[in-house]
Amino acid sequence: MSNGVRSFPLLRLPIDCLKHIVQRMEEIDKFAISLVSKRTQSLVTSTNLLKCRKINICVRQAVSIRIDLPSHNRLICSFENYQVQLDNLSPRNIKANVSLGQTERFIHNKPSYRFEDWLNHVLGVYGRCGVRTVIFDRLLPNFDTQVREILKTLRPEKFLYLGLPTFENKNEGSESIHEVFMQNFDEIILSNWTDVTLDDLLVMNSEEIKIRSDRVIDEKILNRFIKHWIAGSNKRMKYLTIGPQSNFQLVTIDKAAVLKGIRHVLVPKECR
């Protein structure tokens, strides 16, 4: 056999051979291959070798793209330095800490990549056109002024989770929050939410709304909303769920006040 440099020129193999090798790689290695160059990205994309169940985005201390794999493992690209500066909201050259499950495997940065490019890369190689759920546990610095752009960037398709314990002064950003409520999601979950107003409820356009809060909505507001809803105010909405923050708590709500003047049937517990 020939002597020479100990490298394996993978890209010189016929496409079928390439597929066989990539198929046998661990999921995170396939993803790493897609980051090597445009050609390897195109190889991984065109051979349809990367599969996932769903892609979510989580905005916590770091912003992360979470890819749920068919093996029920999770690949996470976490960006510590995304959206930390107000004067440069979408910086290039952000570093991704790529991990599989609990184990961090490598750090990668593509100099030209902004967060949007990373997301497009992930969606492209996994053959998806949008993110299933976006979870906000904190607001991005420019959320109030650029909510549309943010949603356009993060591209949630079905679910939005807003868990904003520090977002006390909601009135200041109520217009931007209404922009979010107006989106046609399958489900929107408001967690740790306080002071849900009638206007908030009336602009909600998702099929299912879940509100978890320790402070229960005022019964009169709820009663008025249900009457509006019956009259056709929220055409897409099918279910409204209101519950305590914790599953172990009980909701203390005056049912009679909520349902006053509304024809209704009480469903027995065992049928729920």
């Binding site: 490298s7 394996f8 020129p9 790493a32 090597v36």
Partner: peptide, 13 residues
């Protein structure tokens, strides 16, 4: 277990 950069070296890309 290799990073994208290490893979680049191994595969000479």
């Amino acid at each position: 277990g290799k990073s994208a950069e290490q893979i680049r070296t191994v595969l000479n890309i």
